[in-house]
Nucleic acid binder design. Structure first.
Length: 134
DNA sequence: TTTCTGACA
DNA sequence: TGTCAGGA
């Protein structure tokens, strides 16, 4: 399966993303309201985030800490042409989704970090996500 | 039990 | 942004 597909799979619940990004649910929902992230939804209307979504949230967090407001952050994404796109098919989400165990989560994070290192991507996740390998 | 939306002493 | 209510 291609990286693009793997990275856009809606797999994470709010709780997981919360610990992954150190953002509050309130902030995450607020950013979504402002179109900064567009997580998928389960049948029960629960948000399902993909690695792409987590990346965006970490970048948002980084920008916010630098004093950039939401309007400014939107500009950044516009410049990067990173239009948040619903990258899933509601029907497919159900089949793939299941509660991720700590073990599975760490396994996937490790793989993502390796992936980043190999491609020389922005080391944002590198530092942030390493928090889970203590 | 976790997450959702709406609202504001 | 925090936090509470009232549901799903």
């Amino acid at each position: 399966m291609s990286d693009e597909v793997r990275r856009s799979m809606p797999l994470f619940s709010m709780g997981i993303v919360q610990s992954l990004t150190a953002l509050t649910p309130r902030q995450i929902r607020y950013y979504e309201q402002n179109g900064l992230v567009t997580p998928a939804r389960s049948k029960g209307n629960q948000r399902l985030f993909s690695f792409n979504d987590v990346d965006r949230l970490l970048e948002i967090k980084s920008l916010v800490e630098k004093g950039v407001n939401l309007a400014g952050i939107r500009q950044v994404f516009d410049l990067k042409q990173e239009t948040p796109r619903p990258d899933y098919k509601p029907g497919e989400v159900q089949e793939v989704y299941h509660q991720l165990s700590e073990k599975e989560l760490r396994k996937m994070l490790r793989k993502e970090i390796e992936n980043d290192a190999g491609k020389g991507n922005f080391g944002l996740r590198q530092g942030e996500l390493s928090r889970f390998f203590h």
